[in-house]
Amino acid sequence: MTVTDNTTNRLDSLGASGDGPSFAILDEESKREIRRALLQAVAVPGYQVPFGSREMPVARGWGSGGLQVTLAIVGPDDTVKIIDQGDDEGVNAVNLRRLVVSSTGIPETTEAREASIIQSRHRIPEDELTATQTLVLQVPVPEPLRGIERDVRELARMHAEADYSRMWVSLYEDKVRNGVITQSTGYPCLVNGRYVVATTPIPRWDIPRLHMSQFLTLFGAGREKRVYAIPPHTIVEPLTFDDVPFEVERIEGAACRLCGSTDSFLVDSSGEVDSWACSDTAWCRARRSQG
């Protein structure tokens, strides 16, 4: 018993205040380490920075990378919005949001305009984001060249030398085999004319909004222990041939069955024919309430 008491006392004395768990789950050292990695990522846009991915109360592959980024940058004055696909009510989004809110006491919102930090898995909100907002994307596979090369040393060399010809070959092959470039989510983009990044897993629809954006985008891959960033006002070019224009998803004649929108990213909502709905549910709801 004495041993246990001593241990508990010692553990208590290690905490900053000793009165319960730390703000935003992570200890300050861990946050600092992640923030250092993020600073490097912002300084070298598109470069994948390794970081010591922590064990999180969510499994790796369930947004643990994005969560760590959010927890490392969140402060008491922030307001957070967390979505899965475009939906604030997705099970994973709800769980992650509860975790962030309960460990920080900060307010949550579903309105993209009100949030200072937006953590997302598959989408950038339809609302135009501003310079005061940070987008945190959960990334399953941070390596854009993974499909064409497995050797990590070779991958490091290819990035170091900006040797992306095999990426171009894969786009060429795609176009030859399928008549179009079929890659939909996670479309590879050249950031700041230097590094190719995986924009996983946002759809093509959202890609143009990363280009010369007002907001900072931070990518966190928990399983693969990498963060990278697209700072505001950075050139982001989807890789495509000069004579094969990059096109975003668009379904001829489709409109949201709820709000009637034809200029938002639509998803098949019920499995029935022609039952398209906005992927960004909060945006759709706002549109409806405005009439």
Partner: peptide, 26 residues
């Protein structure tokens, strides 16, 4: 050569490495 890539794709490799970005030109 990359055996899993088409004949044209194998030629596209050095061309894109040299900066050719036109599908038609490749």
């Amino acid at each position: 050569l990359a055996l899993s890539v088409t004949a044209g794709g194998n030629i596209a490799d050095p061309l894109t490495a040299a900066g050719v970005r036109s599908f038609a030109k490749i």
